[in-house]
């Protein structure tokens, strides 16, 4: 019974994503959607991927990372340089998937290198090392000879199409949900809830943390490749500390418990600044106020109004 229901849910979910894709694609093709909204689809999709990938680390494993944008930057530059070099050699339908793999692999490799020593540290120390890592990446990218320096890396082929982006977002959501309910996701959540108890149950804590870190980084790398192949120009400043924070805010406001909630939170927090554009200079002010109020409101134990309590007692 349960098995059948799961199959049905999977089928329905697949049908829904397919229909949504056809709807959005035809809307864009027919020109019914303004260019402005169309151009918003890219940051929305990218932020969804970034937030979901960070959700794996912060939500499921309970480790804080402040250098997520660093991995995105590495993926963006690795994929961008690869595509630039191969633009004459390989046709686009092989080149772009290859670039995605290159970006993901390079980011994963660096994450693996960083993770070997890093998980000897705990809590806020991990946060500070990832912060330092992000700053190092930014500083190196500006000064390395082959990244275009402060002026930026130009002339990356514009390979990111709407359908590509859409399906990668769908894949990321599916992957996150799958990991969440899989054995490894269960182990991550056990580590989050109580690392000592998890270790006592025979879960190799450090190795599991390392896996989570690498998966997170490679997904961020994929987002980076998508970014570089959409905007075609890269500068190091785009991937600064503020971007890492922006993604972290999305994850935390998503509630740290579900992949879908994270994706929805990323969606709304990306379009919110656009919706608030009429506020002009007060836009970010309102945004920060809302952020503070939401955080305080969510963590306050609201007392139920008197009339409500009385009614309950009477009933």
């Amino acid at each position: 019974m349960n098995h059948l229901w799961r199959k049905k849910k999977f089928f329905l979910g697949g049908l829904f994503t397919l229909l949504l894709f056809v709807l959005m694609h035809s809307l864009i093709q027919s020109g019914l959607v303004s260019r402005h909204i169309q151009s918003l689809s890219v940051p929305v999709g990218l932020n969804m991927i970034l937030a979901l990938s960070l959700f794996l680390l912060v939500g499921m494993l309970g480790e804080l990372s402040l250098g997520h944008a660093g991995f995105m930057s590495i993926g963006a530059y690795a994929g961008g340089l690869f595509s630039k070099a191969m633009v004459q050699v390989i046709p686009v339908w092989i080149r772009f998937p290859l670039a995605l793999c290159v970006g993901a692999l390079v980011a994963a490799l660096l994450a693996l290198l960083l993770s070997v020593p890093v998980f000897r540290l705990k809590g806020d120390y991990l946060a500070i090392v990832t912060l330092a890592f992000g700053e190092i990446v930014r500083s190196l990218v500006i000064n390395l000879p082959f990244t275009g320096g402060a002026a930026g890396l130009k002339g990356i082929p514009k390979d990111t199409s709407f359908s590509f982006l859409y399906w990668i977002v769908v894949f990321t959501i599916w992957l996150t949900m799958w990991i969440y309910s899989s054995k490894i996701g269960l182990e991550w959540r056990a580590i989050r809830d109580n690392a000592i108890a998890a270790e006592a149950c025979g879960i190799p804590v450090v190795s599991r943390k390392r896996t989570a870190f690498v998966v997170t980084a490679s997904l961020a790398g994929v987002a980076g490749v998508l970014y570089s192949h959409h905007y075609s120009i890269l500068t190091a400043e785009v991937f600064g500390f503020n971007r890492s924070i922006e993604v972290l805010v999305m994850v935390v406001l998503g509630g740290l418990e579900s992949a879908i909630a994270t994706a929805v939170s990323a969606f709304f927090l990306t379009i919110a600044p656009e919706m608030l554009r009429f506020l002009n200079q007060y836009r970010m002010l309102i945004y920060s106020l809302v952020l503070i109020i939401v955080m305080i409101g969510r963590n306050t134990q609201w007392e139920k109004p008197k009339w409500f309590q009385q009614r309950r007692e009477n009933a």
């Binding site: 804080l64 972290l248 805010v249 952020l291 306050t300």
Partner: peptide, 25 residues
Amino acid sequence: KPLRNSSSLSVLITAIGVSYLMQNL
């Protein structure tokens, strides 16, 4: 103060909100 007993992550995000607020003000 209202977040004294919440998770450190909530407090961190609130602090980031305060930081944005001061910069934009």
